[in-house]
């Protein structure tokens, strides 16, 4: 009973929605609307799942004075202050805490909640810069392609990028020529010739690359986004969607039951 009924509920609701897509008339269309309405009500309660463990875990830390208990005390305190402030606004001032004149929105939300959340995520700017510096290496053809696409998009999507990009790419080609030349000087025979050709090609490419980027970088970035990038993303998302549909079918048919644990 503890497993069969939930599996049955999942099956019925899932199948009904699929039928309603193809037969949107009575009774399926109407049932779908009713079920949607119920989901709107029940769905809200999923937001608070895990609340008990969050509070209990932190309460335990405070009680046992475990490491970090001060932060836990702040967590519990901020939980109750927010709760009382929000509901208090309704009970005492008789207005929704989300009213533009509500102190909850004007002070707590604007000056406590928003700065905390916004700053926490702004730290990612530093991490991505550091990670790019540390991990982004042009080791082979694919990673060089990735790196070049990234650089073209990063510069092609910002103002003045078109003026800066030619110099950066020209410098890279110059470095490449130097690298080939140095490597070539350590080898002999065909390999040496190949390295020297590489160095020569790099130098010869400097002017055309400089010219093209100076005049067309923004267009190139547009093209990357709209053609090859778009095509690959479409392919990836078609694959993900097929996976999503298969997973949903497994759930509806009761093959996948992990959500009942």
């Amino acid at each position: 009973m503890k497993r069969e009924i939930p599996l049955f509920i999942t099956f019925i609701t899932g199948v009904l929605l699929v039928i309603a897509l193809f037969v949107p008339h009575k009774p399926f269309g109407q049932l779908q609307q009713t079920f949607n309405d119920w989901l709107i009500i029940v769905g809200g309660f999923t937001m608070i799942l895990g609340l008990d463990s969050l509070l209990l875990h932190n309460w335990e830390k405070i009680k046992r004075k475990k490491e970090g208990w001060i932060s836990s005390a702040f967590l519990i305190a901020s939980f109750f202050i927010t709760l009382f402030w929000g509901f208090g606004e309704g009970a005492i001032a008789h207005r929704s805490p989300f009213d533009p004149s509500a102190t909850f929105l004007r002070y707590f939300y604007t000056y406590v909640f928003v700065p905390l959340q916004a700053t926490m995520f702004s730290l990612l700017a530093f991490f991505i810069a550091s990670a790019a510096y540390r991990a982004f290496r042009a080791k082979d053809g694919n990673s060089t392609l990735l790196l070049s696409a990234a650089a073209l998009v990063m510069l092609g999507r910002v103002p003045a990028g078109q003026e800066v990009a030619p110099w950066i790419f020209a410098f890279v080609l110059l470095l490449l020529a130097y690298y080939f030349f140095k490597e070539g000087s350590k080898t002999t025979g065909t390999q040496k010739t190949l390295y020297l050709i590489g160095a020569l090609v790099s130098i010869l490419l400097i002017y055309p690359v400089f010219y093209i980027l100076l005049h067309y970088l923004n267009g190139i970035a547009d093209w990357i986004m709209n053609i090859p990038q778009m095509a690959a993303k479409r392919g990836i998302w078609i694959g993900i969607s097929l996976g999503g549909i298969a997973m949903s079918l497994r759930i509806i048919l009761g093959v996948e039951k992990t959500y009942l644990q």
Partner: peptide, 17 residues
């Protein structure tokens, strides 16, 4: 689990469609 089954069933049905 009954309520969760309902939300999961709805999510799957809506996901497929």
């Amino acid at each position: 689990r009954w309520a969760i089954a309902f939300t999961v069933g709805m999510g799957s049905g809506l996901g497929i469609t």
